[in-house]
């Protein structure tokens, strides 16, 4: 069955690894219609590590699920396209074809490394399962697994014979990363990969991801609620708020010259360890209710720099500096002057 949709393997063109344009996702029930992603446009560059940061309910996980076309019902994409090179629009390719792409060309590590494994099968068997499911040679698979486990600084002999419960959280996350790379994907999506880990393990995983990206030429989408985690390791950061990307740009630039008031607030809310103790500040209010229609900028009710125009006009992402975009009227005006 699966052979009816062989995956083309010619080299991709020079464009972005993934181009999302005008994506909107809604959760529709009889009583409500909640727009969790609203007209989102984003291009993932080849071999880059893109950090997607935002608070609960901002749509960052839904973005990941949209790319995998695995949005849990009743959610569904209502507009837009996700172009993945020669494969076309991921929102409209046949389900069987999508099935072949998942895990093979685009892999995802879900939140909670504890739960991604089958608890009653040894890791070695689960590696074989991956290759079998994709109609590939299992023996070659084990060789590849050995290579990848070594790359993630684990002992392949021991890990392949282990059950998931025999490993610590940090080890499981390493194994999950190795398994996700088994079929040599072009894109790896990681949803809160370090949130369940202790800070020392987290630091090790972050170093590992940086290394893996270079060695295996894979684009990483790193989703997290922790700004410091991505600003320290990602190439670019996309800041999400209420279903929108409100700011995107190079990590160091976003940190040094944040242009969107929400990004500024997010940075000011992190207590620092190095240097003199900074005061942290809270933002007023709470994120908007996405089941109601939002007029104007979704951040306006909480924004310390709000202007009248913000309450009636919804800002789009505008280029503020080369490679730095923000969806803020004030930022755009400051730039125009």
């Amino acid at each position: 069955m699966a052979r009816q949709h062989p995956i083309t393997t010619e080299a991709s063109s020079g464009a972005g690894a993934l181009e999302i344009t005008g994506l909107s996702v809604e959760y529709v029930t009889k009583r409500s219609r909640t727009r969790v992603i609203d007209n989102l446009t984003l291009t993932l560059q080849p071999d880059e590590m893109l950090g997607v940061v935002g608070e609960s309910g901002c749509g960052k996980s839904t973005l990941a699920y949209s790319i995998m076309r695995m949005i849990p019902p009743p959610g569904r994409p209502v507009a837009g396209a996700i172009r993945f090179g020669r494969h076309g629009d991921l929102l409209s390719v046949p389900e069987l074809y999508m099935n072949r792409l998942r895990g093979d060309r685009i892999a995802m590590i879900f939140q909670g490394a504890q739960s991604v494994f089958n608890p009653v099968r040894r890791i070695g068997r689960q590696v074989e399962d991956v290759f079998q499911a994709h109609g590939k040679d299992r023996r070659k698979g084990l060789e590849r697994a050995r290579e990848l486990l070594k790359a993630t600084q684990l002992d392949p002999g021991r890990v392949l014979k282990s059950y998931p419960h025999e490993m610590s959280g940090g080890m499981r996350q390493r194994v999950a990363i190795a398994m996700a790379l088994l079929l040599d994907p072009e894109i790896l999506i990681l949803d809160e990969p370090t949130s369940a880990l202790d800070v020392v393990s987290q630091a090790a995983i972050l170093e590992l991801l940086v290394e893996i990206r270079q060695r295996f030429h894979v684009s990483l989408i790193f989703i997290t609620h922790d700004f410091a985690v991505v600003s320290s390791h990602a190439d670019r950061i996309a800041v999400m708020y209420a279903g929108h990307i409100v700011e995107i740009g190079r990590a160091d630039e976003i940190f040094r010259v944040p242009r969107h008031p929400y990004t500024k607030g997010l940075i000011q809310a992190i207590p620092n360890i190095r240097g003199p103790l900074r005061d942290i500040r809270a933002m007023d209010g709470e994120p908007p209710d996405l089941s109601k229609e939002i007029v104007g900028c979704p951040f306006a009710p909480r924004c310390p720099e709000v202007m009248d125009a913000c309450r009636s006009y919804k800002p789009e992402l505008l280029t503020i500096a080369p490679g730095h975009e923000a969806a803020c009227i004030r930022a755009a005006m400051a730039e125009a002057q």
Binding site: V199, V200, A203, A228, S231, S232, N272, R274
Partner: peptide, 24 residues
């Protein structure tokens, strides 16, 4: 523990890892 805490400032992180961590 202190050196493992990521800093939002990308530059501060590059001078990190002064003590090798033997295991987690």
């Amino acid at each position: 523990l202190r050196q493992a805490v990521p800093d939002p400032d990308p530059e501060l992180n590059q001078t990190q890892d002064l003590i090798p961590v033997r295991s987690t």
